[in-house]
């Protein structure tokens, strides 16, 4: 698989290590009332879709960026990649 790195172009997936579902970016509030339940959900439960999956890949043998890669788990076709930093900042309303 070749991952289209937003800064470096197509790179061999071997240069990356895989973490899993991109929802892991959105860590719940550990001080909230229901933190035990939300953390159980966050740490252990997955949608695990057969089809389009947004997932975190770390460019370890590269520029050490975390990417959010969109990939079809039934074909391994890679549909796009973004810097996870941009995704996380956009979720926070774009504030730096």
């Amino acid at each position: 698989m070749l991952i289209p790195h937003p800064l470096l172009g197509l790179r061999d997936a071997q240069e990356f290590t895989y973490l899993g579902d991109a929802s892991l970016i959105h860590r719940p509030d550990g001080m909230a009332e229901n933190a035990a339940e939300t953390f159980f959900d966050y740490v252990y439960l997955r949608d695990n879709p057969a089809g389009v999956h947004r997932e975190l890949w770390f460019h370890e043998q590269g520029d050490r960026s975390w990417l959010v890669v969109t990939r079809d788990t039934t074909t391994h076709e890679i549909l796009g990649a973004e810097l996870a930093r941009d995704v996380a900042l956009a979720a926070k309303g774009g504030a730096q």
């Binding site: 470096l8 197509l10 790179r11 061999d12 071997q14 240069e15 043998q61 590269g62 520029d63």
Partner: peptide, 17 residues
């Protein structure tokens, strides 16, 4: 290395495996 040698002209630099 698994990088595109033809596209890796003078002035290119990258980390890879």
């Amino acid at each position: 290395v698994n990088i595109d040698a033809a596209g890796f002209g003078p002035g290119s630099a990258t980390r890879t495996g």
